[in-house]
Design a protein around this nucleic acid. Structure first.
Lengths: 398, 398
DNA sequence: GGCTATAAGTACACCCGTTAAACTAACTCT
DNA sequence: AGAGTTAGTTTAACGGGTGTACTTATAGCC
């Protein structure tokens, strides 16, 4: 194969057979269409470096399988015969995605091309919700989606706030749901018969911003999600960093001051205690009981600049910079994407943070700080990340 | 292709052509031989999942190119016709590796199969050594190696302590050499005409332990190298973590206490100030001027247990654990490999560190702490890592 | 020693996928 | 309308891996 990503140095891999060619080329065409949307055959040929004849052969095959349609282009630039537009069929291959957020369950259908076809808010999620009950609620929504789309789904992806073991999709710990060692993937597969993938919301949010959000075509980034807690996801070399067990990205519990506040996790001085939602509330002079919408309104008002900037933000920015500096020294992400309420607060502190980083951090001088807010993904990031992760393996087999 | 490593989700890749097949299979056979040493054709067929006929064809080709030889096995188990042993020819493909350590320059020839064929200590390296002079010294050693091996080298790999930009092999900062923005790769290519790769010593050390050292077949690890400073390298998913610019792994400058000592880097409270060589000297009650051999002797003596354990090691272990906990929460490496003087100190503190981690760190309960000392790679780790990195790209083109 | 079972090397016809070449079709520009 | 350009279509050629049939080399057993 002609791809050029870093291959593992310590593994020899396996051999390649002739029919792997067709599979690889089919998948490459499908992936291109999924990521770039409708594309002409000519462009497909150029980007994949394949012959006209090959593209025709592959596209014909995909068309007869119903995965794509071909249309004549409405307008096209320059001379020469216009190239046929190959359009992915969203309903031909689709996946179910689930986001078990703190307080709310969302189930959606995402089609080939990345479009959200249908979305169902499925009511509040209590803390200590029974896993089996939640599985049941999810399973009851799926048939409705199948009816709407008209074809069976290829697989299911689930995002949730918690540590998920990559090997078997077991939720090891999800404090906000009150779960420990819940074999969610196994439960969902048993109930629905579908292939299921479960992963951490922040890891999937990072992937979503990388594939469809504000960090498109940026292969190295850290995604910082500040909600109740502080979560993180890392994309490195274009690949999601999972770690040995799948637990990578627990950056909220980086210990930064031994004399700090006691954290929910039991340790003292975690980053979360300095830059989490509670810390942000303190920084802008609000009570810790304030609601998230109230915080968002206050941040929006502060961004207008009509009010004096609260002093607490100086300290907030400093702690944000200390943690970020450590992240950047370790991972050299090049880009940091801010999600959750931090996306709203970023404009208020970004200059301070940048100044601190430049002073304190060897590597950080060349880092770009990006807010995830304008990306439009916002809170559906994890939903989209789950879809993209599932598609990545599904498209190889279509 | 049939490999199964995580592929980038945000890129479609390119197409695959028929002659990619042969190239991929040739490379797969070569990589297998390089990593596992002499292997029978039967085993090659099974591990690469290729037909006997294909293996014969590829191996015949490699043999006629002089890259491998075939011999009848001396003894073999079980019934049936014994399978031919395919043996990589170390001198057929080899690379020059260079290690610019603090104080000493080493140049070596590493052959197909990973064997160090020849090694030249090339005298001390002063701080503020002139890059052009160093390049000259390296270049003068190469012809001797070429004479010894008898064939021209495929490429050159250089390990050094400093921040190296991955794109063009420019040394952005190397405090111990007194360098800033030295285009070392370009200088070496211009002088020797060879393809050159330059990378950080700890990144390459991590890779070496992963490929040939104490972490073979472990795909997620953090390598912690304590020399004068504290460097680190990360292997994630079997791939070296480089980051956007190539600067990832600067874990020594993780800031852990705002009231800490002033670090060489100008910040205050870096991890290095708590677990670096000076901190270790203080922890075992030695003067900060003591030599490294003296420190090693003292650590060896302490390991015998005939002397009471210095109290300072308690604090040292605690700070080691705090930084490790942050690393583990972020990267979930599964395995941590200790190199440099820390490999000697590890047995003295490992129990304390483990206890602290279990208490303080969500993810860390399942982490394995491994000393790089018994691996035998020791200080030649970076040299071997450089060779393996270069081989990884060279073997695709042989 | 000879027989059988087993596993691997060898040779060749076959299949499959990509490609290059030649031709045709569609569009722009003058 | 004709030249120029670009892409779709068709087909023969090529290259690489596979399966099959046959041969070869070993162990175990009578």
């Amino acid at each position: 194969m002609t791809t050029s990503w870093p291959r593992p140095v310590g593994h020899a891999g396996t051999g390649t057979r002739p029919d792997d060619l067709r599979r690889a080329n089919r998948a490459a065409v499908l992936r291109t269409l999924h990521l770039r949307g409708a594309t002409t055959r000519a462009v497909l040929g150029r980007t994949l470096q394949l012959n006209r004849s090959t593209i025709k052969s592959v596209v014909d095959e995909l068309a007869s399988d119903g995965l794509v349609t071909e249309t004549v282009p409405v307008d096209h630039p320059g001379a020469g015969r216009p190239s046929m537009v190959v359009r992915p069929q969203p309903c031909s291959v689709w996946v179910v995605t689930v986001y078990v957020a703190v307080g709310w369950l969302t189930v959606a259908a995402v089609g080939l091309g990345g479009e959200v076809l249908f979305r169902r808010g499925a009511g509040p999620v209590r803390a200590d919700v029974d896993p089996v009950e939640l599985v049941e609620r999810i399973a009851e929504i799926v048939p409705g989606l199948v009816r709407e789309v008209g074809t069976p789904p290829a697989a299911m992806g689930v995002a949730l706030p918690g540590l998920v073991r990559a090997g078997d999709g077991t939720v090891r710990r999800a404090p906000n749901l009150g779960w420990r060692d819940v074999p969610l993937q196994a439960l969902l597969t048993a109930r629905t018969g579908m292939e299921v993938l479960v992963a951490n919301e922040a890891d999937l949010g990072a992937l979503a911003e990388h594939v469809r959000g504000c960090a498109r075509h940026i292969d190295d980034l850290v995604y910082l999600l500040v909600d109740v807690g502080v979560g993180g996801g890392v994309i490195s070399g274009g690949v999601s960093l999972t770690g040995a067990g799948g637990y990578a990205g627990e950056i909220g519990h980086m210990i930064l001051r031994r004399d700090g506040r006691v954290c929910r996790c039991g340790s003292r001085g975690c980053w979360e205690t300095e830059v989490g939602e509670l810390a942000l509330l303190r920084a802008v002079g609000m009570s810790e009981q304030s609601s998230r919408p109230a915080l968002r309104r206050r941040l929006a008002q502060l961004r207008t600049g009509t009010e004096p900037r609260p002093d607490g933000l100086d300290d907030y920015a400093r702690w944000l910079a200390v943690g970020l500096g450590n992240l950047v020294n370790m991972l050299d992400p090049g880009t940091v994407v801010f999600g959750g309420v931090l996306a709203d607060a970023l404009p208020l502190v970004v200059d301070d943070v940048r100044a601190h980083l430049r002073r304190a951090c060897l590597v950080a001088r060349e880092v770009d700080l990006v807010s995830a807010a304008p990306s439009g993904l916002g809170s559906s990031g994890p939903l989209i990340g789950a879809a993209e992760t599932v598609f990545a393996s599904v498209l190889d087999r279509c």
